[in-house]
Amino acid sequence: MDYFRNIPVHMDFDGQHKAEKLSRIIITLFGAVGLIWGYIIQQFSQTVYIVGAGFVLAAIVTVPPWPMYRRKPLIWQKPRPDNEQGDSHQKPKKKK
């Protein structure tokens, strides 16, 4: 059980952004092509199959955390010891 829990499934921020963009591009592209092709041959079932193929492709490409989505990990600071906690409470920094 621990073995399965320890399989990492998350992507880094950049990877999440990439995965979302890629999945949207794939589905939209297959949808557009399916719509045009189905209209040309007048078969709506073909449109549905093409969108389904796009869904499968997007699921394979963007759902598993492939290494390409994990190339920019966050650099974390070291945890500070507890006794330093009280000395630096200030207002949050604003975005410029």
Binding site: E20, S23, I27, T28, G31, V51, G54, V63
Partner: peptide, 18 residues
């Protein structure tokens, strides 16, 4: 998009919208 379930959900939802 941070977990498998969230990515699957996003994909199904967007496919159904299209």
């Amino acid at each position: 998009m941070h977990s498998l379930a969230n990515r699957s959900n996003h994909l199904v939802s967007y496919t159904l919208t299209v």
